[in-house]
């Protein structure tokens, strides 16, 4: 996905809702995450997301630190959260 300059056009965390919801059974786009890089608190929907084939990378809107990596591998969803210090979920 590129813009008119051939740059990758990032989307946002709303777009991760489908794949996460498919595995978790609940919507997590309104989950609150705290960035391990700068401490900024933000909802998953607002993260800067780069899609990369089977994987997706979600970055902090403040400092661009990688907060979340997601890959759909065979029948598994792998989520790497090492860039996130805290994840808060609402009861469905």
């Amino acid at each position: 996905m590129t813009d008119e300059h051939g740059e990758p056009a990032p989307l946002d965390g709303n777009g991760l809702g489908g794949v996460l919801g498919a595995f978790l059974g609940v919507d997590v786009t309104d989950a609150i995450l705290v960035c391990d890089g700068c401490g900024r608190q933000q909802v998953l929907a607002a993260l800067v997301v780069f899609g990369a084939g089977p994987g997706g990378v979600a970055r902090c809107r403040g400092c661009s630190h990688v907060m979340l990596r997601v890959a759909e591998i065979r029948n598994e969803l792998v989520v790497d959260l090492r860039g996130t210090t805290r994840l808060r979920l609402r009861r469905p």
Binding site: N14, G18, A22, D27, T29, A45
Partner: peptide, 9 residues
Amino acid sequence: LRGPVGGWF
């Protein structure tokens, strides 16, 4: 079709 998706927007 998969959805509906989204609980924030």
